[in-house]
């Protein structure tokens, strides 16, 4: 495998890891506050549809992005009301949200656009176009660094850079702000936070809201940046892979980046069977590569390679003692 091919692979990795990363960080905020969220998949799908639909109708991708985030936030609100206000089972609520999105996107898309559950193709300002970073063209011919900067770092859509920037930002919010400290505390020991006079319900709703925004961006990225329109089931299990990445990352922001890049790389690798055969000398089964993230997650969960310990109060509704 030569240098140019490697760069191309890493370029694809970055593109494919972006939705995983955004969804994974979304889940991180929610789960760190003690709210399990297996509804990432559904929110991503709903956001993908709404962003593409609004971008197609208005021709403005930024309005599309806002609409996508809005759709995701509505589902987040349902999850919040069910699992925080009414102290329902968070897992069941997540399952319901996934089905709601899977069904509603197609029903609405069909009645709105009549294209078999699809939105019209987006073009021009209707989608996020790649941006060339400063000096990319001039530095292109500098050996090694030039191609890396031009091919790999420059030339992505703005949302890719947003996702990457979210990693240090998430770290800073969680570990360097008072809000972050409280957020983590609410996921470990909500009673103590309550005793300190801080609203558990408020903090958890804030976390679920941040989760909705981030996963909304992930969905919009799928439909308006990676692709030029929505098709049915386009999230294709990415919400679950993000969940797997979150466990793989042991609920930490920087590890989340590494896990998502790894899973993104696996997806990029499955597009190039010729490279795998070239490097290791025999054909690897495509299905095997596709499920590798899930198998790795089960192994991590089983504690064979370090132990993944979820936030202690995760999944439990908080009942104030009287």
């Amino acid at each position: 495998m030569d240098f140019a091919t490697l760069l191309q692979m890493l370029d694809a990795t970055l593109r494919l890891a972006t939705p995983l990363l955004l969804a994974c960080l979304a889940g991180l905020f929610s789960e760190r506050a003690g709210i399990f969220d297996i509804g990432l998949e559904g929110k991503m799908l709903a956001a993908a549809f709404m962003s593409a639909a609004i971008a197609a109708v208005t021709g403005d991708v930024w309005l599309g992005l806002l609409a996508g985030i809005g759709a995701s936030l509505v589902l987040s609100a349902i999850h919040g009301v069910a699992s925080i206000t009414f102290r329902g089972n968070q897992l069941i609520s997540g399952v319901a949200i996934n089905f709601l999105a899977a069904g509603l996107t197609v029903v609405v898309a069909q009645s709105w656009f009549r294209q078999g559950g699809r939105t019209p193709q987006l073009s021009g300002d209707g989608r996020f176009n790649p941006i060339t970073l400063p000096f990319a063209e001039t530095l292109r011919d500098v050996p090694v660094i030039g191609p890396i900067y031009f091919e790999l770092i420059s030339g992505h859509t703005i949302l890719v850079y947003v996702a990457l920037a979210m990693v240090p930002l998430t770290w800073w919010i969680l570990y360097r702000t008072r809000f972050g400290l409280r957020l983590r505390a609410v996921g470990e020991n909500p009673a103590a936070v309550d005793t300190a006079g801080v609203s558990v319900v408020g903090l958890r709703f804030a976390a679920v809201g941040i989760c909705g925004v981030l996963v909304g961006i992930a969905g919009a990225y799928l439909a308006t940046a990676l692709q030029a329109g929505f098709v049915k089931d386009m999230s294709a299990g990415r919400g679950y892979i993000a969940l797997a990445a979150l466990i793989f990352a042991k609920w930490r922001p920087w590890y989340a980046l590494y896990a998502c890049l790894l899973f993104g790389f696996l997806q990029a690798l499955s597009l190039r069977p010729d490279i795998i055969t070239g490097v290791i000398g025999f054909r690897v089964n495509g299905q095997f590569l596709d499920v590798l993230p899930y198998i790795l997650t089960v192994i991590i969960l089983a504690g064979f390679v370090g132990k993944a310990i979820p936030p202690r109060a995760g999944g439990q509704p908080y009942v104030k003692e009287r």
Partner: peptide
Amino acid sequence: NDPVKGSELTLAQIS
């Protein structure tokens, strides 16, 4: 019905 993968495959072929 997987345009995302179709598009990635195309990019890989272009490279």
